[in-house]
Amino acid sequence: TETYTFDSEDQAEEFAQRAQKKGYTVEKRKENGKFKVRVE
């Protein structure tokens, strides 16, 4: 499980979609103005 942090929602969304296409489970959340994407 890895967590990635992005400054913009667009970046987080793009990353999450790519990860989902590769078959990963993706969980997105906003925390302290940053966008976190957890991938497993």
Rank of each mutant, 00 (worst) to 15 (best):
K36H: 14
A16E: 03
Y4E: 02
G33W: 02
E27R: 07
R29L: 15
G33L: 03
R18K: 10
E13P: 00
K28G: 03
A16K: 05
A16H: 02
V39M: 04
E13G: 04
E40P: 04
E13C: 12
K30Y: 15
K34Q: 10
F15H: 02
K28D: 01
S8M: 07
R18I: 11
K34E: 05
E31G: 03
E2Y: 15
F6V: 01
Y24H: 07
G33P: 00
F35S: 02
V26S: 03
E31D: 07
V26D: 02
R29Y: 15
V37W: 01
Q11K: 10
K34P: 01
A12S: 04
T1R: 10
R38A: 07
E9S: 05
R29M: 14
K21E: 13
Q17P: 00
E31I: 08
K34M: 10
K22P: 04
G33Q: 04
E9W: 11
V39L: 11
S8D: 12
E40Q: 14
E14L: 10
A12L: 02
D7V: 06
R38Y: 14
Q11E: 15
V26H: 02
D7R: 04
A12C: 05
Q20C: 12
A19I: 09
E9R: 05
T5Y: 13
E14C: 13
F15E: 01
K36M: 15
Q20N: 07
T25S: 10
A16L: 09
K30S: 10
E2G: 14
E31R: 03
T25Q: 11
S8R: 09
Q11L: 11
Y4W: 11
T5E: 12
K34G: 04
T1I: 13
V37H: 00
G33H: 04
E40S: 15
K30I: 13
K21D: 13
D10K: 10
D7L: 07
A12H: 01
F35A: 00
T5M: 08
A16W: 04
F15Y: 04
A12F: 02
Q20E: 11
T5Q: 06
K22W: 13
A12N: 01
T5K: 03
T3F: 11
F35K: 00
R18P: 00
V37I: 08
K30C: 12
Q20K: 12
K30P: 06
K21Q: 12
K22N: 13
R29N: 09
R29G: 09
E14G: 05
N32L: 06
E40F: 15
F6S: 00
D10Q: 12
Q17F: 09
K34S: 06
A19M: 15
A19R: 04
K36F: 14
V37G: 00
N32K: 07
K22H: 13
K28T: 14
V39K: 01
D7N: 07
A19V: 10
R38D: 09
E40V: 15
E9T: 03
Q11N: 05
E31L: 05
A19D: 01
V39A: 02
Q17W: 09
F15G: 00
Y4K: 03
V26G: 02
E27N: 09
E13D: 14
A12V: 02
A16Q: 03
K28P: 03
R18C: 15
K30Q: 12
Q11M: 10
G23H: 03
Q17N: 10
K36S: 10
F6W: 02
V26E: 02
K34R: 09
K22R: 12
F35E: 00
E2P: 07
T1V: 14
F15L: 03
Q17S: 10
T5H: 06
E9N: 05
N32D: 12
K34N: 05
K30H: 11
K30M: 13
K30L: 12
R18D: 10
T5W: 15
T3L: 08
N32F: 07
G23D: 02
E31A: 05
K28H: 08
K36G: 04
E9M: 06
T25C: 14
A16G: 04
Q20Y: 09
T25G: 06
G33F: 03
D7S: 07
Q17I: 11
Y24M: 08
G23K: 02
E2Q: 14
A12D: 00
Q11R: 08
Q11P: 03
N32H: 08
E9Q: 06
K22A: 14
E9V: 05
E14V: 07
K30V: 13
R29I: 15
E2N: 14
T1Q: 10
G33N: 07
Q11W: 05
E13Q: 07
K30W: 14
F35P: 00
F15D: 00
T3V: 12
Y4C: 08
R29P: 01
V39Q: 02
E14M: 09
E2V: 15
F6L: 01
A19S: 05
E14A: 12
E9Y: 09
E31N: 03
R18S: 10
A19W: 14
A19L: 14
Q11S: 08
E40L: 15
S8F: 10
R29D: 07
N32I: 02
R38L: 13
R18Y: 11
R29S: 14
T3Y: 11
F6I: 00
T5F: 11
G33M: 04
K36Q: 13
K22S: 11
F6C: 08
R18H: 09
E13H: 06
E14D: 10
F35D: 00
E13A: 07
T1F: 14
A12P: 00
A12K: 00
R18L: 13
A12E: 00
T3D: 09
F15K: 01
Y4Q: 03
R38P: 00
R38E: 07
Q20T: 11
E27W: 11
G23Q: 02
G23S: 02
Q17K: 12
